[in-house]
Design a protein around this nucleic acid. Structure first.
Lengths: 73, 73
DNA sequence: CTGTAGACTGGCGTCGACG
DNA sequence: CCGTCGACGCCAGTCTACA
């Protein structure tokens, strides 16, 4: 699976744990709502700065975000 | 410290462990040599796809790359 | 609430050249 | 070997609108 899809799925997973809508998470991370849709669906090659904002809004660290089975080799 | 700088420093750290020059790593990752310089010096907002190439060339997983003190909260 | 589409601007990523 | 510069095409990220 593509890295963009893995990132999107991880975001969706953590977002649902927080019980936030895409729009609520997008607002919290200060990114565009329609862009969040694309990112979660693995369609966008996200930059590290935007990813940082989203990860912060998901209330985890970079280490925690990537500490998931799909990111381990 | 900025996320771009943290990523750059982590790349430099792992690159030196492999005893590779910037140019050798750039070739291995199939990215431009001058771009590698900027990335290591925290000047570029790198995308996830390019980061994936570099991480692969560093012979670690995403989880391992971000499993460093500077990425834990 | 989520997805898609279209239009737009800035900056990512490449390349050649020079110290 | 590393850093910087200038030029350039293309896409990241925003925004409006419609289902």
């Amino acid at each position: 699976m593509d890295i963009k899809e893995k990132v999107g799925q991880r975001i969706r997973e953590l977002r649902r744990q927080l019980e936030l809508s895409q729009e609520a998470l997008a607002n919290k991370a200060e990114v565009d709502r329609t862009y969040m849709t694309d990112v979660e669906n693995g369609r966008r090659n996200i930059s590290i700065e935007i990813l940082e904002k989203i990860i912060a809004a998901l209330e985890v660290s970079f280490a925690e975000f990537f500490d998931a089975k799909s990111f381990k080799k």
